[in-house]
Design a protein around this nucleic acid. Structure first.
Length: 127
DNA sequence: ACCGTGACGGTAT
DNA sequence: TATACCGCCACGG
């Protein structure tokens, strides 16, 4: 596991060392072609209520870690970046390459699939 | 130590 | 459905 941050922040039980590792692992576990919400990842990383920390972890993660960050969306299925921004377009492109389409900043419902966004988005997750 | 700022989320309006 | 608020937590000024 790579060093996430210099010693400065590694002092409290809530610091990055373990939490961050779990977060990145959770994101890496999202199946290709599916997506998950920041809050979902936080919960999976045993950090309920700390969705913002997921965003932070992804931001500071080096590209070399190859984390599938594009599979992480807001709980309402919308892209977290401002529409039109570089990151926004990049995420849409990456998702499209996995068969996930985005309309107006929000992940589109699968034509024949689930009736609700949740069923589509989180469907692959075990029940 | 205080405070504003987020790749957030849930509830109320 | 779309906003507005407020709770959340780590960072940086």
């Amino acid at each position: 596991m790579r060093r996430i941050k210099p010693a400065a922040t590694e002092r409290s039980p809530t610091d990055c060392r373990d939490a961050c590792a779990r977060i990145l692992a959770a994101v890496a576990a999202i199946p290709r072609g599916t997506v998950a919400a920041y809050g979902e990842i936080a919960a999976a990383a045993r950090l309920p209520g700390r969705a913002r920390m997921v965003a932070w972890a992804l931001k500071q993660a080096p590209p070399s870690a190859r984390i599938p960050w594009h599979r992480v969306l807001r709980s309402d299925g919308r892209i977290a970046f401002p529409e039109g921004s570089d990151a926004f377009r990049q995420q849409v492109a990456k998702l499209a390459r996995e068969g996930v389409t985005v309309v107006k900043g929000r992940v589109a419902r699968r034509n024949d699939g689930a009736k609700s966004l949740d069923a589509l988005l989180w469907g692959p997750r075990r029940e």
